[in-house]
Design a protein around this nucleic acid. Structure first.
Lengths: 254, 254
DNA sequence: CGCCACATTGATTTGGGTCAAGCGACGTGG
DNA sequence: CCACGTCGCTTGACCCAAATCAATGTGGCG
């Protein structure tokens, strides 16, 4: 429907067509700290300047849709900041979240194969993404063989993550699954080198859609964890967890 | 442990070192009906003859392990016949099956990235695979750019399958999940153009490990489906299902 | 024949779903 | 500025589906 329109709009917002805008983008790409983890790690500064103008960066507010399932995208999205959920809607209106994507993750890879998007991608927090037209990707791929390998790594990451979700979030009791999920969020946070490892938990509905439980059960479990001292609020939105004890709960065979 | 040894043994069995063996393999590759769906669709007969000698075909009896998680493989495996389960073992000894692979599927893709195997692969039925050394794959990739795209398709397939499992086999009640699973097995069977669409259901333990339920629940559901006329045995191992009604059960919102 | 692995079925318990009420935070409009 | 409505979270009461524990059945094989 309108997510393309939305993005086009957003693009226009920050695009302009002036050479100063192109210059800004070049500067952005040169100093980008995400790049080395994502696609274009091997490009020379010159090459970078060449593609930068064609790669708009977009800020998407929380709750907005990046793209819809079944739609045709013409770009990949590299996440620079924020969290995006990839959602599969079921015929009966309920939904299942199959992945959370963050900094350095690349979305809509299927576009490169000429296929429609596999999921709906919604911003969970405010998100900043670079929209890389597939034409640019193809061009770089032709000139730089390593990009294929680079791309494959992202695919493989997607496979590993999905299998991880199957074994960790869809196996065992709700309590274990919640413990594993919170532990993973914690680790994610640690790996980003936050000074104090605290993080934001998605809405109860979303947690439910991740773990395959109801929002009520999700709520109960979190409350229960708090009462047991497994976690505590650090402010209105963020929490801090006891990683050790969480791990015990996650492994409990009862 | 010994899966490498086992494969080496199997390789030796059907390898020999005679030129007649090489000839047999060349013939096998030329007439291979799997090839067009798997990796080497674009090779000329000459090129095919070139790599064929380096690609042993192996028969693995039901129950045997192709390779173990964490192990280092030096080959990809292309399945020519049979069904393989990819398993993740959990610390407590239980296990979760994350994928079923069959004809034309390519296993141990992670090997190509230099990573250890992500799962344990066990033959569910007797299985026939071609073991393609990564050296061969790399060589062909260098010469034939299309192979990268080809490989990526297999990765993407793995992602789609895994996400499909999350939404179909890990969402909703046990009854719905079982119905979806049997429907999928049926479709799989149809797509292979069996004259009569009947198929073999894995052991109750395995079904449990696929759907995240216990073997007892799996058994009860199947018995129940049979009593409801949703399925019937066609021989000791194979069953036939009522695809239509199965679909209804799978979609039921209650 | 007897063993063993696997499937089925039953009895019982319990985890988590469902339905429903209350609560606090926030934004809007009077 | 406060009243009100909305939305998401929490908590409770109840009930059902699925796990658990356990016994019996069945087919294959040495």
């Amino acid at each position: 429907m309108n997510q393309i329109g939305h993005l086009a709009g957003a693009t226009m917002q920050c695009a302009g067509q002036s050479s100063s805008e192109a210059g800004r983008r070049a500067q952005r790409c040169r100093s980008c700290t995400v790049r080395k983890n994502a696609l274009f790690v091997g490009l020379s500064p010159t090459e970078l300047d060449e593609i930068a103008p064609a790669v708009p960066d977009i800020v998407v507010p929380a709750g907005e849709t990046l793209y819809d399932a079944e739609s045709r995208a013409d770009s990949l999205f590299i996440i620079r900041r924020g969290v995006v959920k990839l959602v599969n809607y079921l015929p009966d209106g309920s939904y299942r979240i199959v992945r959370l994507a963050r900094r350095t993750d690349v979305l809509a890879l299927e576009t490169l194969l000429g296929e429609p998007c596999d999921h709906t991608a919604e911003a969970l927090t405010e998100v900043e993404v670079c929209r890389v037209p597939i034409g640019v990707v193809r061009m770089v791929m032709e000139r730089q063989a390593w990009l294929s390998t680079r791309m494959i790594h992202h695919w493989h990451l997607a496979v590993q993550t999905a299998h991880g979700w199957l074994t960790r979030y869809a196996t065992g009791g709700a309590r274990q699954r919640m413990a594993r999920f919170l532990a993973d969020l914690h680790d994610e946070c640690v790996s980003e080198a936050c000074p104090r490892p605290c993080f934001e938990v998605p809405s109860r509905d979303d947690v439910g859609a991740i773990l395959g439980i109801t929002k009520e059960t999700a709520s109960r479990l979190i409350s229960d964890f708090r009462r047991s001292g497994l976690l505590c609020k650090v402010d209105a939105r963020r929490i801090e967890v006891d990683r050790e004890r969480l791990e015990e709960v996650a492994a409990a065979e009862a």
